[in-house]
Amino acid sequence: MSLSRTLETELDRPNTTSGRVKAESGGSIVEVDVVELDRLGARVGGIKVRRGKPGDVATQAMAAPGNLRHLGEGLTPIEVEPSLGGAVLRSAPEEMDGGEFWQLSIGDSGREAELGRYQVGKSGKREQKPFTLTREHLRRTVDGMEHALEGRSQTEPSTAGSV
């Protein structure tokens, strides 16, 4: 079973409503900070995907935007530093004050990727915000992050979950 499917099984457990939900499959681990959950979607604080093998950070940073296109705001590699084993990708916030943006951090020599939503306050301070995804989008996001870590250029159109 794929990592996203395993996560879905965990989310569907009757006692899962909020908190950190963890799922593991094929040597990869996904952790989702769930704020609220229902049958259709989830409000999450952040998503972290980790796999056993390191990867080429530059390739992963190039692969990530295509794999996470469904988030609606295109990610761009901002800093790619193979010597430090990481990269930062962000989407462009629409406005300076109060603008929100996605941030995908690849770290630990390409072993992990973390996705978060941030907002810039009036004082310039950056705060992490929870964001809402449908179950379908959550699954595609986890798949996308996993594929990006594998260096695969684009997620295949997801048919899983559609009945």
Partner: peptide, 8 residues
Amino acid sequence: VDSHYGSG
């Protein structure tokens, strides 16, 4: 210097 992404 602040950027679009706020202050570090």
